[in-house]
């Protein structure tokens, strides 16, 4: 039997796929595998000892916990921002829409300094907060604030196109069938934007785990309390402890990879009906 050759309608699959494979390998996989390779200069027990040091473990907790919390908060409030930008017409809408991108565009160190200035006990927000007995700068709360700041555009920008895609007639249909505004929101709108919401959440979460610049200023970097993992890595590098730095990096890498995998499979599950 002769084998039927399969021809694709769009030409160039071989070329583009080859390019993609090489590109991803060079840019992503090669540096990452070097990272893993570097850690092999450590023995297994040395590796365990470094990555389970109490100071390091405390930083994992802060980094993952604050990142997760920031992503959750961004998912909620980013949704509201995206919703009002898409659904309503109001003055300065274009301007506000543009401002959403600022955390993307600004150098993270600049954001960090700005946030610190505002949230420090003598800053605008910080002074108000401290009158209620709340300290933002140089606490874990400060870390959270910085991570919320840098994650917001990810949620807003992934949600906007999906919200724009929602057919007005679908909502009208639901309304004519007797649904209340709340029922339309929970039963029609939310299910259709859930995949993008999950994507936005994932992106914000991933970005927060790796964030360094904006956090180091506002956190104050107090050992065991406001030290994030990326900061520890930098500290180890500055002390010429390359093996230690890569060991901690590998742990962080694995953690974020596993989390991405979980969230992506949830998303895939949620898209099954599409």
């Amino acid at each position: 039997m002769r084998k039927q050759r399969h021809h694709r309608v769009l030409p160039g699959f071989g070329l583009t796929f080859g390019f993609t494979a090489v590109y991803i390998s060079l840019l992503v996989l090669l540096p990452l595998s070097l990272l893993v390779l570097r850690t092999t200069s450590l023995s297994w027990s040395e590796f365990i000892k470094i990555v389970t040091a109490p100071q390091v473990v405390a930083s994992y907790k802060l980094t993952l916990g604050a990142s997760f919390l920031a992503a959750v908060i961004n998912a909620v409030f980013g949704f509201i921002v995206a919703w009002s930008l898409v659904r309503y017409k109001f003055p300065c809408r274009r301007f506000i829409d543009a401002i959403v991108d600022l955390p993307f565009a600004m150098p993270t160190a600049v954001s960090g300094i700005a946030l610190t200035a505002v949230c420090a006990p003598n800053g605008w927000v910080g002074s108000v907060a401290s009158s209620f007995g709340v300290k933002i700068a140089y606490t874990q709360l400060g870390v959270l604030v910085a991570l919320i700041f840098i994650g917001l555009p990810f949620v807003v920008r992934t949600l906007q196109p999906t919200l724009e895609d929602i057919d007005k007639e679908v909502e009208e249909a639901a309304e004519s069938l007797g649904a209340t505004r709340f029922q339309i929101f929970t039963r029609i709108i939310l299910p259709s934007v859930l995949p993008s919401l999950a994507t936005g959440f994932t992106l914000a979460f991933a970005r927060a785990i790796g964030e360094y610049g904006s956090v180091v200023f506002i956190s104050g970097n107090i050992s065991y309390r406001t030290e994030i993992t990326p900061l520890l890595i930098v500290a180890k590098l500055e002390a010429f402890d390359y093996a230690g730095a890569t060991a901690v990096s590998v742990v962080l890498l694995c953690a974020s990879f596993i989390l991405m995998l979980i969230i992506n499979s949830l998303q895939f599950y949620g898209r099954r009906f599409k």
């Binding site: 009208e172 639901a174 004519s176 069938l177 259709s192």
Partner: peptide, 27 residues
């Protein structure tokens, strides 16, 4: 609209795409 109890059929159907046929009719 919800209180008028009229059945409205839209030109482009306006079906709920993440609901099944059953879910659409039962909505």
């Amino acid at each position: 609209v919800a209180d008028r109890r009229v059945g409205f059929v839209f030109q482009h159907y306006a079906l709920f795409r993440h609901h099944t046929v059953y879910g659409n009719i039962a909505f």
